[in-house]
Design a protein around this nucleic acid. Sequence first.
RNA 1: CGGGGCGUAGCGUAGCUUGGUAGCGCGCUUGGUUCGGGACCAAGAGGUCGUGGGUUCAAAUCCCACCGCCCCGACCA
Length: 568
Amino acid sequence: MRWSQAFIPTLKETPAEAEIISHKLLLRAGLARKLTGGLYTFLPLGVRALRKVEQIVREEMNRAGALEVLMPALQPPEIWQQSGRYESAQGVLFKARDHAKKEWVLGPTHEEVITTLMAGELSSYRQLPKNFYQIQTKFRDEIRPRFGLMRAKEFVMKDAYSFDTTDDAALASYKKMYDAYARIFQRCGLKTMAVEADTGIMAGKFSHEFMVPAEAGENEVAWCEQCHYAANVEKAGSRATPCETISGGQPEKFATPNVATIDDLTRPPFNTPAARQIKTLVYIAEGKPVLILLRGDHQLNEAKLTVALGTATFRPAEAQEIVAALGARPGSLGAVGVKELPVYADETLRGAANMTTGANEDGRHLRQVDLERDIAVKHWGDLRLAQAGEPCLKCGQPLLIRRAIEVGHVFKLGTKFSEALHALFLDESGQKRPAIMGCYGIGVTRTLQAVIEQCNDKDGIIWPLSVAPYTVCLTPLSVAPEGAVMKLAEKLYADLSARGVEVILDDRDERPGVKFKDSELIGFPIRVGIGEKSLAKGEVELKTRGGAMEPIKADEALQKVLEKLSVK
RNA sequence: CGGGGCGUAGCGUAGCUUGGUAGCGCGCUUGGUUCGGGACCAAGAGGUCGUGGGUUCAAAUCCCACCGCCCCGACCA
């Protein structure tokens, strides 16, 4: 490609809308432009990089034995009703109506479609295992699109769905995808970590997320450097420091005027450490109030609460609901003597004694509360958020917590969809059984931006060779057609092109500074600078993005470039 | 959905408090001089000041409503 013929609108200044580095570079390097919030046009350079990522994904999926298909993005709502997700996915479903006013949904994911397909095609165990994938645009009515391509209303996703006859076989399919994902992200030049994940509305057995460590990420990951335990904080467990277990006597009410928070009680005159307090939360679960007890220095993990409650339909109670349930306002809440409401307590509190908690009277608290003696706990479980520095569950080393971008997610689904949508087969004994499914997603557009987020410096993007829109940028410093500089540039351009190298020739009549800045902003992995001064010595300049300038003999330039391309 | 911020030329912005018919930088066009790290000189083009309403002799500026964009949050009593 000749730069003069291309469309590469680089920007000197950063558009005000961009906050994080990858979003800024996406716009500045002329890769994409915003249509409106959460919707982007990929410009030629952006499309090239995107296609590179797609191709890596495609190659690795094929290598892992998955079969490429392409499903409709427009879907009938009936299959969503059949799977039971028409309601639960309300929040993200884009809907459209046709001329007859019939409703359609724009696919946010394709379990319903693929399972419907298999319901029609599958009949025998002999057809399994099978794994189908597609690379396609997904639509999600995100509450808040963010950071350019990072969270968009429309985005390119690779989704795959496996069908197996047994749990063991399903696990093998899962493992294949897990391994394929590790290869995919590695080939994209990304450092990722696979972490245990919460399964959310997918309701699967277990899952892993592939995370790119980055401050701009929307997730938090807990991990242990010692034993390599790693989990999304929504899922992560950790050991807590032990509670006091020696009873201080019978509960005793005391006045706490103007005390509204855990923090207030830690200060004089009360001096009660947060770890010696019981935090009482009121939630409304499926319309009914429940109490949740945590230690004062701990925080609730709603993903874990979902598991404990057995429902995702819950929310924090409003102030008036709290008063109705307990007779006191937030700040003086407690569970002592409460019999009519179910009490869910965090495991950490088991055996805790001599604790302080609200007395369900405004301005009063109770001390010398012994958990199991004084509170009727209905359900004990892990309800708390793991915190940095707490000992790892497995080895006891302090856990680290870092932000990260989720680029891939693998789920073991089980039979939820195959049962609901009748993807059944006859086994060896003639028994009709539902296929055991797994599903596997990669945010392709998000992966692209994650690469930029991870690979950049003050001058711009540093593309890994594997996803660079062009791998080589030829930069003649003067473009007079008959000059020696341009003649050499043209020859190199022809030779590299002939060998299938993706090369761009900066034939613009611009000053050297402009060309250098642009090539670094965009981040082509290899630049060959050709100028009169060095050419007089028979040399050109080979520069890898992020590396040092290296003078090389002009007549060896082709060979050197080819070496760089194959070595890296 | 709640909170905060912002909307002025393609991009970045000043002007708004204190109302008087819009300015700067980048980019763009033309000519000239330059030419190894985002050149310089000169002359230009480009604006419904987000939209609608109100106040006023007069509104980018004050008031009301709406729309859009960005950020934080969606919980911790």
